[in-house]
Design a binder for these strands. Structure first.
Lengths: 213, 213
DNA sequence: CGGCCCATTGACAGGCATCAAGTCCGGTGG
DNA sequence: CCACCGGACTTGATGCCTGTCAATGGGCCG
């Protein structure tokens, strides 16, 4: 089959996407899993509410991630748009067919199952650790490779600090103070709001590994 | 026959379980996923080591749970026996066949995928919360229904406090102090080591929900 | 009986949450 | 274009919580 025909066949899948505005809800915790959401651009967050009403951000999702995988019949968390989003919606039955094919063909689970679970698993490891600097730096190294890179070598960090705080289980004030600390140590720079420039990545990783200073 | 091959022989006897002693390792983080372990009796723990060397207990597993599900090619955590165990070993290919059958027949994933991921997800929610009492009580209510019940209505809690501490991301001293606090409040009793009696379950749940006192 | 590991208890200091106030930025409407 | 406004970020002072250290007790096993 000629290449140009292949690309035509795939084009509708690629180009058609549903868009959502920042703050919009993709699905609610407890709703029946009817669709799997696949991010095309933007950042989304998984949210759970603890019994005392605290908002907990359990994961951040980026372009290419699939959210809402029917590992149970009902969504286990709420998914919201952090930035403006473009995403695709797969019906559960279609997604299930792909899973079966993957299991039979390659003898393995869909990689996407992993991509939804892993962020939450890693969050558990991060917030188990003590010290604001350790947590913030462990968070940075865990997502830095998923962030869009700018021309000047900076990374765009399109996350409000209040969400970072809810993800790290610390207060927004502590996030702010820690970032200031990292600025003073010349490890990062923040030329604009929502924009972080990693100056000394080795230092960040040193802090994250607990061997700071 | 080389020793390393002998150790892999964990003969797949269906009906007869394999036994392991407390402290023994079922599999190591990073090893290739060749088997799924299904607990028949006893308690196991999932362990990860943070970059600075801290032991983190990411989950507890009980009778009926399946551990080591090949969501990735390599185990993502180490599994160890907390108490003496009896378990069964399923080869990865056999387990995969069961997954495919389940997906095609019932149109859903194996419930066991959920049972391995859920404890770690819930741990994230628990350790996000502040206050020792809240964490300990949230932990208790999350596992109490999985513990073996005694004749006198007490629950056996076969977990050393050091493991509870590693699970809750607090110190063993704090676990001890919190349990003492709960004893003084007549919410629990601890007639023996490794044995906890829930006297006032409503109080425990009230503490866990943050509406304590 | 002795040794070891776990549990327990107390004193102390440090870190982080809390509260409060002030600043910056983007958006909106005149 | 500018004034206004609301939300997010920033910064400081204060107190409590809990981690740390040290010592003791207690149960289990050799």
């Amino acid at each position: 089959m000629p290449v140009h025909q292949m690309s035509r066949l795939r084009t509708p899948v690629r180009t058609i996407g549903i868009s959502a505005h920042a703050g919009e809800t993709l699905f609610l915790e407890g709703e029946h899993c009817d669709h799997v959401f696949e991010l095309r651009s933007g950042v989304a967050r998984g949210v759970s509410v603890s019994p005392d009403g605290d908002r907990q951000v359990t994961a951040f999702f980026f372009s290419g991630d699939q959210i809402g995988i029917p590992v149970t019949d009902h969504y286990r968390f709420t998914a919201e748009a952090v930035t403006d989003l473009v995403y695709q919606c797969h019906s559960r039955s279609r997604w299930n067919d792909a899973l079966v094919a993957s299991c039979q063909g390659e003898g393995r689970l869909l990689p996407s199952i992993c991509t939804e679970q892993d962020p939450m698993f890693r969050r558990g490891l991060i917030i188990s650790r003590h010290g604001m600097i350790v947590r913030v730096c462990a968070f940075l190294v865990s997502i830095i490779d998923r962030l869009p890179v700018q021309q000047d070598g900076a990374w765009l960090l399109p996350l409000p600090q209040v969400d970072i705080a809810a993800y790290l289980a610390i207060t927004p004030e502590s996030v702010c103070r820690t970032l200031r600390h990292l600025r003073e140590r010349r490890a990062v720079a923040m030329p604009q709001r929502d924009r972080i420039m990693i100056i000394d990545r080795a230092a960040i990783e040193r802090f994250a590994s607990g061997r700071g200073c």
